[in-house]
């Protein structure tokens, strides 16, 4: 983003202080967003999310793999974020890579759940095929095509939507002969596929501190002025699934607890809205086919 003049900055901060940002939003308002499902037909599930001008593609590829060594009864969820250089000239080369890695980590923290898989975004136990040997691995990839702030929150919405669209082929373990391992037979008939429950998938609300206040869903210009940001993952039950602090400035601890409750409140509203948008996208998809 090109830099803003000192005058524009103070106008921006003044607006935030008065709860009237440059586009008329209050500090806690999200921009309007849209969701499109099944945009990459070769993926097991996919979605495109447009939040303001921020445009991301989330795709899920389900592949058979080996379960984690410490928890042989679970499957795996692997997350990655990639910011395309098309998102803006500042994302060519190293800058883009670093931010991609940082956001990927933040997503992982919010979606991976505890060490033993409890509280993860998806039911990892349900992904197991043969305990200790084979399981489904869901590779969730986010590609950021256009950046106008708040990539992380948009990515979380994208992954939730893509997961709701994901079909996992049915696997049958055929009886082996004697000591031999049974073979796996895959049935990818779309009617026989298993769906992934997204009830536990959290959403992320990033609160960006600009001056003395914090705002939700910052645009590119607002984000460029941030001193620090707190990304909070909230799930349907109102629980916090992950908290990530970004930015160099410190945040006073008393402010943090306030920010957490604000994030929860916004998160709840957002979850309802996202669920509604996903259903809408699903019915649109059905009417097209």
């Amino acid at each position: 983003m090109p830099g803003l003049s000192a005058a524009e900055l103070s106008f921006l901060e003044g607006g935030i202080a008065q709860d009237l940002r440059n586009d008329g939003r209050g500090r806690e308002d999200f921009r309007s967003f849209s969701i499109q499902l099944d945009v990459i037909s070769q993926a097991s599930g996919s979605a495109r999310v447009r939040l303001g001008a921020t445009d991301i593609l989330a795709s899920i590829k389900a592949e058979l793999g080996s379960p984690p060594a410490e928890f042989p009864h679970l499957g795996r969820l692997e997350l990655a974020v990639e910011i395309s250089p098309t998102a803006g000239p500042e994302f060519e080369g190293r800058g883009g890579e670093e931010l991609s890695a940082e956001l990927g980590k933040a997503l992982e923290r919010s979606f991976a759940g505890g060490a033993n898989g409890t509280g993860a975004a998806v039911d990892l136990a349900a992904l197991s095929v043969v305990e200790g040997k084979t399981c489904w691995v869901l590779y969730a990839d986010v590609l950021v095509l256009n950046a106008d702030g708040n990539i992380l929150d948009a990515s979380a919405i994208g992954i939730k939507a893509a997961l709701s669209n994901t079909r996992i082929p049915k696997v049958e373990v055929l009886a082996g002969e004697g000591d031999e391992e049974g073979e796996l037979e895959l049935n990818d008939d779309p009617d026989e596929c298993a769906r992934v429950s997204t009830a536990a998938v959290p959403l992320i609300v990033t609160l960006t501190k600009v001056g003395r206040h914090y705002i939700a869903d910052a645009t590119g210009d607002e984000e460029a002025q941030m001193s620090s940001a707190l990304s909070v993952a909230v799930n349907e039950k109102g629980q916090l699934c992950g908290v990530t602090k970004r930015g160099s400035a410190g945040i006073d601890p008393s402010v943090i607890s306030d920010m957490l409750s604000v994030a929860r409140r916004i998160g709840k509203r957002l979850l309802a809205k996202v669920d509604a948008e996903i259903s809408l996208a699903e019915s649109r998809l059905e009417s097209e086919t």
């Binding site: 001008a53 445009d55 098309t86 998102a87 803006g88 000239p89 095509l145 256009n146 106008d148």
Partner: peptide
């Protein structure tokens, strides 16, 4: 015209 910051896309 998908990318709002590019001159063309």
């Amino acid at each position: 015209g998908l990318l709002h910051r590019a001159d063309g896309s």
